[in-house]
Simulated assay, not measured.
Amino acid sequence: AQDFELQQPQDKVSVTAGEMLNLTCTTSGVGPTGPVKWLKGWDGGNETIYEQKGTFPRVMRVVSESDTEFSIRIRDVRPEDAGTYYCVNTAVVTLQEDDVRSQLICEVLHSTLTAPLRGMYQLSKALRVSPSVSVVADVPSPVEVNKTMNFTCHVKGFYPGDVAVTWLENGMEIKVENISQPVETPRGLFELRSLVEVQATEEKNGSVFTCRVVHDAQDPVSGTATLWIAAPARG
């Protein structure tokens, strides 16, 4: 867990028209910090008063290069400047595979609240982890001619659990019914296995079997294996 705090301690501020308005905002702690900006108003009617990119002629930061001090000054205050101002932080999170069960919590403390306001976001809603795909044979190569053997496709470490598995022999799709359902691992990721049964006839020598996996409508990920047939023993 990481704790990050944004403090906007002022309740009400009164200034005379033409004077300078100081609005205080500071941050502390360690967390997924991102851009900080000031808004006037809320919801659909808000107006950006200051952000780190852009030009705001009457507004300047108190400490321009600080990573923790985001207080601003508005010069030449006018009647239309009256309103409610918010210092807003945008969290920037670099998602990792182990964030499947992690959550981001925003807690608001204010003198007018009897209890903190809390909002939570499950990082799994935004997380996408692509699978690893490998194909292994149940008998070592080369395979005895006319022997029945299996290729197994191992699809591991993906999230969410929506995948489609297709088998191809030399680029041509083949029908396979033995595909397991995705199983959730202790880490919260998913894995599955798919098996194709092959009779090692002489004409299949050198055939390439491909397991193609499409995960969450992304580009396919594939694993391949080649079938080699042992030369018949001579009497």
Score class of each variant (00 low, 15 high):
Y121R: 10
P9A: 03
V136W: 01
I229D: 09
A200S: 11
L104N: 01
C106D: 08
W42D: 15
S194W: 00
V36I: 11
S66Q: 05
L227C: 10
W42N: 13
Q96T: 11
L6A: 07
T152V: 14
V208R: 10
G34I: 09
F151G: 03
L95S: 08
D162N: 15
G223D: 04
L23Q: 04
P9V: 08
P140A: 11
V145G: 04
V93T: 03
W38E: 06
S222V: 10
R61L: 15
S66H: 09
W38K: 05
Q96L: 10
E107H: 00
L123A: 04
Q96F: 06
E5K: 04
E177I: 08
R75G: 13
V198T: 03
A82N: 11
A126I: 03
F70W: 14
V183Q: 10
P32Y: 11
P116G: 00
G171F: 03
V145D: 03
S207F: 10
C106F: 12
P160L: 06
G223A: 01
R193T: 14
T26D: 04
M120L: 12
S130N: 12
V165F: 02
S130E: 13
N178A: 14
V59W: 10
T148M: 05
L127D: 04
T48P: 03
A231N: 12
N205H: 11
V145I: 13
G34D: 11
I74L: 15
S134A: 09
I174C: 01
V62L: 09
V208N: 00
S64V: 10
T27A: 09
R101S: 11
S111T: 11
A115D: 09
M172L: 11
E65K: 05
A137F: 01
V92W: 09
L127K: 00
G54V: 05
S66C: 07
Q52S: 14
V155K: 00
G45W: 01
W167G: 07
P35Q: 08
T33W: 11
S222A: 14
Q103H: 08
A200V: 00
Q52G: 14
L127F: 02
K147L: 13
V208Y: 02
L113R: 02
T210C: 04
V214D: 04
E107I: 13
Y86G: 08
L21P: 06
I229P: 10
S134I: 12
V108E: 04
C87Y: 04
P160S: 00
N170F: 00
G83T: 01
R75T: 15
T33F: 10
G45R: 07
P220L: 05
S111M: 01
G119L: 12
W42A: 15
V143H: 01
I72R: 01
W167E: 02
F4K: 05
P35Y: 01
F158Q: 01
T226M: 10
D11H: 11
T27Q: 06
D67L: 06
R75W: 08
V13L: 05
